[in-house]
């Protein structure tokens, strides 16, 4: 079976959708979505109700789209639903663990439901539970688990049958900051070290910034943007400057720089400088100018750095435009 799976790590996309649409009566959960998802970790971002879970259910073949096409791991969702479900893992957003069963027994059972034999299922479950970090507690009934342990158990069942692709729906939901970091590191490892493609959803953009190679932003069922995480965070050419002192010093610097032909605006305790005009655009010219102006004014430079954008900014910009 793995020889088939090897292809998935080639250059081809893991998921492709074309004009995917899902309407529930008047509610438009997804509208004309066309995206490609490759290997590695792909973040699916959007507010609640943006269509993230709907997209995952359609890709699993559990919901029928109103229109459009999609294929997962080379199988069409219309006809290949069963084949797809054989090759993917799914960690739902909501609670889905029976309280009176141990994580160990449950993971074994779920691995068998994916087609693994009894001994293979036991071996894989033990492996996967170790990877997600459930130790002795795996033998206790899951009803007594903390949220963090439940999320790990949910992740373990999604990985138990060694899928080629996992859908992780809000894996960090309800976790404290430390557990959240652990979970994100685990998601990153699944994509890189385990070699399993990951589609992970979150409404917290900062999280996906840390772990994903590629980000898809959904808003109200529409695609806002789909590109590599690096592109989102590209340098904008803007600069940020901070000087010793209060807002008075900040404004003195800003006004002086404006006189020299730079467009400045205050941002918190700093001056944000838009990409310099052509005559100052050469490498280092703007930096030198800022240094000189600060020296003339007798201001102490504290910080001079390129202004990197955050995923949030992209999201907010996009939202404003649509």
């Amino acid at each position: 079976m793995r020889n088939v799976t090897g292809e998935q790590h080639g250059p081809g996309p893991v998921i492709t959708t074309a004009g995917l649409t899902k309407h529930y009566g008047a509610v438009h959960a997804l509208t004309d979505l066309t995206v490609e998802v490759g290997a590695g970790v792909t973040g699916l971002v959007g507010a609640n109700g943006a269509g993230k879970s709907t997209l995952i259910k359609i890709l699993l073949g559990l919901l029928e789209p109103t229109g459009g096409h999609a294929s997962v791991l080379g199988h069409d969702i219309e006809h290949g639903g069963q084949e797809i479900r054989r090759l993917v893992g799914y960690m739902p957003e909501h609670d889905c663990l029976p309280p009176d069963v141990s994580a160990s027994d449950f993971t074994v059972h779920m691995a068998r439901m994916s087609g693994l034999g009894a001994s293979a299922a036991r071996e894989r479950s033990a492996d996967v539970l170790r990877h997600v970090g459930l130790d002795e507690e795996r033998y206790r009934p899951m009803g007594g688990y903390s949220t963090g342990m439940k999320q790990r158990a949910k992740l373990a069942q999604a990985l138990a049958h060694d899928p080629q692709l996992v859908f992780l729906d809000e894996p960090t939901n309800g976790l404290d900051p430390a557990a959240r970091n652990d979970m994100l590191r685990l998601v990153e490892r699944i994509g890189s070290e385990f070699g399993i493609a990951v589609l992970v959803t979150s409404h917290l953009l900062g999280e996906l910034e840390q772990v994903s190679d590629h980000v898809i932003v959904l808003d109200g069922g529409h695609l806002l943007r789909s590109s590599a995480t690096g592109d989102f965070l590209q340098r904008t050419g803007s600069l940020l400057v901070e000087v010793v002192g209060t807002e008075t010093e900040r404004d003195r610097l800003g006004e002086a720089l404006a006189l020299r032909g730079l467009t400045c605006r205050p941002r918190g305790p700093m001056v944000a400088i838009d990409p310099p005009p052509p005559e100052l655009a050469a490498e280092g010219v703007a930096h030198d100018l800022i240094r000189d102006v600060a020296a003339e004014l007798g201001l102490g430079l504290m910080r001079l750095q390129p202004d990197r954008r955050h995923l949030e900014d992209v999201f907010l910009d996009g939202g404003a435009h649509v």
């Binding site: 079976m1 793995r2 090897g6 790590h9 080639g10 590695g40 054989r86 994916s114 087609g115 693994l116 034999g117 293979a120 894989r124 492996d127 990877h131 049958h161 060694d162 890189s192 070290e193 385990f194 070699g195």
Partner: peptide
């Protein structure tokens, strides 16, 4: 083709039969 394969001593893939 698999990133991180050289360091991957932990995760083992399943190559066996699937029912």
């Amino acid at each position: 083709s698999r990133p991180g394969v050289i360091h991957d001593l932990g995760y083992r893939h399943y190559d066996g039969v699937r029912d």
